[in-house]
């Protein structure tokens, strides 16, 4: 029981971090970014390359992952989203294709086989029969710190308030002197960096392999659909619902079915409450 609680908390913190970058882009840019999982992929491999292949310090590896994700986000905005302005189907198809393209690039550069990320912090603690790798604990705590900082940022800075403003009323933001283009650029860069850092943690939780962008994308979509696009707090709550659902499923039913219930939950919510549990579209 305690084991389930601990594992659920650790996993949910990570899921919240995975989902929040996706939520940001949907709220501010109104774009369903199906290439979101690619940030995690690129982040994981960037960390692998810089920290393990080149042997840079682990913190520097995480930083490089964040920078790669940020640049990828900015490029995606400038080269795909902005030219296709407002054409949602085209943006969704293009971003999905981009994710597949990046997967192929990763296979081309690093090969098809999966890689093991060494723990960011080595060591394991046993609590009530549950093995808690320090790496997972670090990932959960880091996720919480990042989410709380983000929550503070969005509420208390000019740029953060501008992001909320653009998400709630584009014209209102424009006549307040907010440049929506700059806010969008910033949000895409931030979303990419968050996704890539989440990718490092996610890969250290599971493993690093070229198809690792799919599962996080489903988690992010699930959090967004179940929660309704909402506040950062809403993302946190629903990430815990999804995280605990997975842990409970693998503990009491079968580990093979863990992802299945998340997807069933998506369908149930779509049918029963299309606007989500906390449904509103603003940040």
């Amino acid at each position: 029981m305690l084991q389930v609680l601990i594992q659920g908390l650790l996993l949910s913190g990570l899921y919240a971090l995975i989902a929040v970058g996706f939520t940001l882009i949907f709220s501010v840019g109104r774009v369903l970014n199906l290439a979101y999982g690619a940030y995690l992929l690129i982040g994981g491999y960037a960390y692998f390359y810089f920290a393990q292949t080149l042997g840079m310090p682990k913190f520097a590896g995480v930083l490089m992952a964040g920078i790669f994700g940020c640049v990828l986000g900015l490029l995606k905005f400038q080269l795909i989203v902005k030219p296709l302005k407002g054409n949602h189907v085209a943006i969704e198809i293009s971003t999905l294709i981009l994710a597949v393209f990046l997967q192929s690039t990763v296979i081309f550069v690093f090969g098809d086989s999966s890689k093991i990320l060494l723990p960011i912090i080595p060591g394991v603690e046993r609590v009530a029969g549950a093995a808690i790798p320090f790496s997972n604990l670090f990932a959960a705590i880091a996720s919480w710190i990042i989410l709380l900082s983000l929550w503070w940022f969005v509420r208390s800075t000019h740029m953060g308030r501008a992001m909320q403003a653009v998400s709630m009323d584009a014209k209102g933001a424009a006549i307040s002197g907010v440049d929506a283009n700059r806010v969008n650029m910033f949000t895409w860069g931030l979303s990419g960096a968050l996704g890539a850092i989440a990718g490092v943690f996610f890969a250290s939780y599971t493993q690093l392999y070229p198809g690792m962008w799919v599962a996080p994308l489903i988690i992010a979509v699930a959090v967004v659909i179940v929660g309704g696009i909402g506040s950062i707090i809403g993302t946190l709550i629903v990430a815990h619902i999804v995280g605990f659902l997975e842990i409970l499923t693998s503990a009491y039913i079968a580990p093979e079915l863990r992802g299945v219930f998340t997807m069933l939950l998506i369908i149930v919510i779509l049918v029963w409450r299309p606007s989500g549990l906390f449904g509103r579209e603003e940040l």
Partner: peptide, 29 residues
């Protein structure tokens, strides 16, 4: 806006889930 024109539009275009103070703060951008 920066060169000195303030606009209060017909439908207000406020930010509904932000507080009064935060709405004003966005105006100070």
């Amino acid at each position: 806006v920066a060169s000195g024109v303030g606009y209060a539009p017909e439908r207000f275009n406020l930010f509904p889930y932000m507080t009064v103070r935060d709405n004003l703060m966005v105006g100070a951008y």
